[in-house]
Amino acid sequence: MSLRLLVLLLLPSPAFAADALPTPATSLLQMLLGLGATLLVLLGALIMLKRLQGRRPGQGSLMHIRSAISVGTREKVVLLEVGKQVLVLGVTPGRINALHSLDASDLPPATTPGPLPGSEFAGRLRQMLERRHES
């Protein structure tokens, strides 16, 4: 007798089967809620990442990179300003070497960079595309 009762409990009942099937509206609502929750989590992670990147150690201190140039695929020469002194450093993936040291007053003041090379081309291309769309 208990075996029959166990089998009856394991088999789905027709009364419960109708409730178990989701309607298209509830399936769509469930999918949209899941998508919205996922997007909110991603947006929160993006905001936190931007805030953490904004707070870099060394900002506002006496030490900052004045200039850098690549001299190879993975090698750079960096001008690091520390207080009133500028260090010329050779930077490779495995090492940093001090190449030279000089006073900050010996170098010209830092200037704002001018237009990037090729920006004239971008402006001309934009003008040509605008003319093309007008005619």
Rank of each mutant, 00 (worst) to 15 (best):
R4F: 14
L6A: 12
V7P: 02
L8P: 05
L8K: 12
L8Q: 14
L9P: 00
L10W: 09
P12Y: 02
P12S: 03
S13V: 09
A15Q: 14
A15L: 10
F16Q: 08
A18I: 04
D19Q: 12
T23C: 03
T23R: 02
P24V: 00
P24R: 00
P24M: 01
P24A: 01
L29I: 06
Q30D: 13
Q30W: 07
M31G: 13
L32K: 11
L32D: 10
L33I: 07
L33V: 07
G36M: 11
A37M: 10
A37T: 13
L40S: 07
V41Q: 08
L42Q: 15
L42N: 10
L43N: 07
G44D: 06
G44A: 14
L46H: 11
I47W: 08
I47E: 03
L49F: 12
L49R: 06
L49S: 12
K50A: 08
K50P: 04
L52W: 09
Q53W: 06
Q53C: 11
P57W: 09
P57A: 12
G58A: 03
G58W: 05
Q59W: 13
Q59I: 03
G60C: 03
G60M: 01
G60Q: 03
S61Y: 00
L62D: 08
L62P: 00
H64F: 14
H64I: 05
R66F: 02
S67C: 09
A68S: 09
I69S: 06
I69L: 07
T73W: 09
E75A: 07
V77I: 13
V77K: 02
V77M: 01
V78W: 00
L79T: 00
E81Y: 04
G83E: 10
G83Y: 01
K84H: 09
Q85P: 02
V86L: 02
V86D: 06
L87C: 01
V88L: 15
L89Y: 01
L89R: 00
L89S: 05
V91Y: 00
V91W: 01
V91S: 04
T92M: 09
T92C: 13
P93A: 14
P93V: 03
P93K: 14
R95V: 04
R95L: 11
N97W: 05
D103G: 14
S105D: 06
D106S: 15
D106A: 13
P109H: 06
A110W: 14
T112W: 05
T112L: 15
P113M: 10
G114E: 03
P115C: 02
P115N: 09
L116H: 15
G118W: 04
G118C: 04
S119K: 02
F121M: 14
F121S: 13
F121R: 07
A122M: 10
G123R: 15
G123D: 08
G123C: 09
R124M: 13
R126C: 12
M128Y: 12
L129H: 01
L129M: 14
R131P: 00
R132S: 12
R132L: 15
H133K: 08
E134R: 11
E134S: 13
S135E: 11
S135H: 12
